[in-house]
C-alpha cells in the first residue's frame, strides 16, 4: 500500500475542497470495509484519503417533506434497526440484513454500499476494471460464472455489487451530491453508468463530489427484495430482485422491477414491470414478470444459470411483497 496523507474534515465544504479533480489522486473513506482492502491490493493508490467520520450532518435518518432521508454515513445496522425503514421499506431491510456479516453491517455505510467497487475477481486481482491482460479480455474465455448477463457486449462485464441500489431504484429514491459548486440531486438509477474506459468509474459522481444522503419518497408502495445466495454468511448474492408497486385493490400499478448482480449497473426491467401492471398480484403474474425479466439476456460461457435465476428471483420477490 502506498503511503497517503489522511484528513478528517468537520464540514462537507471542507471535505469537498480536499478532493482532487481526477480519479485516484484522492479517495473518500466512510466505513472502510471496501476502501481499506482496495488500498492494500493497490486497486487505488491515492495521495490523500479524506475521512467522512467527523463530517457533521452525514449520519442519521430523518423524515421530511414526505420522504425518508438517510445520511450517507448511516451504518447499515442503523438502517436495519430504524422503525420507519422497517415499516415502509422492507426491500431495503432484507437486502442489508442479507450481507451476512455483523462486522460489515456494523461498520459499513449506506453510501459505501452504493459506491463500493465491483467484486469481479479479475478487477480485484489487478487486471483492471475490464479484466484485461496484455490487451486481451480475460472475462469471455475465463471463469465468468458471476459476471453479467445483460449489457455485457461492451468491455464492461462485471456486475454492480450494491445490495441497496435495486431497492432504492424500485422505490424511486434520489441521492444528493455535494461538489465544489454546490449540490445536485439525481435519481439513484442515474448514479450508475456502464464505464466505457477502464479509467472511468462505475458511478456518475465526479472525483470531487461526495454523496451526502439518499431520499426515499414515502408513498406506501408495496415492496420486497429476494436474493439467491450460495450461503447464508458473508458473501455477495448471485442474483437479486427488488420490486415496488402501488397496490390498487390487489392489482399492481406503476410497478418497478430492478435486478442486481446481472449487469454492470443495477438492471431496471421495464418488461417485468409491464407484466405486473394492471394484473392481480399473485403467483401467475409473478411468474410472468419473472419470464419477462429474463428476456433478452445474453449469458457468457459459464453463467447461463443466471438466466433461470432471474425468473425465480423476480417471482419470489413479487410473492414476498404480498406478505
Amino acid at each position: 500500500m502506498k503511503p497517503f496523507a489522511y484528513a478528517n474534515p468537520k464540514t462537507i465544504e471542507e471535505a469537498v475542497k480536499l478532493l482532487g479533480d481526477a480519479w485516484g489522486k484522492t479517495e473518500v473513506l466512510a466505513g472502510g470495509t471496501d476502501l481499506v482492502t482496495s488500498l492494500k491490493q493497490n486497486l487505488t493508490s491515492p495521495d490523500k484519503v479524506v475521512s467522512l467520520k467527523d463530517v457533521e450532518g452525514l449520519s442519521g435518518i430523518v423524515a421530511a417533506d414526505g420522504s425518508l432521508k438517510i445520511g450517507a454515513t448511516t451504518k447499515l445496522k442503523d438502517l436495519i434497526a430504524n422503525a420507519e425503514v422497517k415499516k415502509n421499506f422492507p426491500c431495503l431491510v432484507t437486502a442489508a440484513e442479507s450481507i451476512g456479516s455483523p462486522q460489515i453491517i456494523n461498520v459499513g455505510t449506506v453510501g459505501g454500499d452504493l459506491l463500493q467497487r465491483p467484486r469481479c475477481w479479475f478487477f480485484r486481482q489487478g487486471y483492471g476494471l475490464f479484466g484485461t491482460y496484455e490487451g486481451a479480455a480475460l472475462v469471455p474465455d475465463g471463469d465468468n460464472r458471476y459476471h453479467a448477463i445483460f449489457d455485457n457486449k461492451g468491455p464492461a462485464q462485471f456486475v454492480n455489487p450494491s445490495s441497496l441500489a435495486p431497492g432504492l431504484i424500485a422505490l424511486g429514491a434520489t441521492v444528493r451530491v455535494h461538489g465544489p459548486s454546490g449540490t445536485r440531486d439525481l435519481p439513484v438509477a442515474e448514479l450508475f453508468a456502464t464505464p466505457k474506459a477502464d479509467t472511468d468509474r462505475e458511478y456518475t459522481l465526479k472525483p470531487n463530489e461526495i454523496l451526502t444522503y439518499v431520499s426515499i419518497p414515502m408513498k406506501g408502495l408495496k415492496n420486497a427484495t429476494y436474493e439467491i445466495r450460495q450461503r447464508i454468511g458473508l458473501d455477495w448474492p448471485m442474483v437479486t430482485a427488488s420490486v415496488a408497486y402501488e397496490d390498487s385493490g390487489g392489482k399492481a400499478a406503476n410497478a418497478k422491477v430492478v435486478l442486481g448482480h446481472v449487469a454492470p449497473t443495477p438492471w431496471v426491467s421495464d418488461k417485468a414491470a409491464a407484466a405486473l401492471n394492471g394484473q392481480a398480484v399473485g403467483e401467475d403474474s409473478a411468474m410472468k414478470a419473472g419470464a419477462a425479466a429474463a428476456e433478452g439476456a445474453t449469458p457468457l460461457s459459464m453463467n447461463g444459470y443466471k438466466v433461470h435465476q432471474v425468473k425465480v428471483v423476480v417471482k419470489r420477490a413479487v410473492m414476498a411483497s404480498m406478505a
Partner: peptide
Amino acid sequence: AATALLTGAQEMKEAAAQAAAPAEMGP
C-alpha cells in the same frame, strides 16, 4: 447535527461559516 441531517440550505450556510483549516496528517 446529532439529530438533523445536512438537508437544508440554512444548515449548509451555518456549516460553511464554521469551515476551518482542514486537518491533514501524514503520510
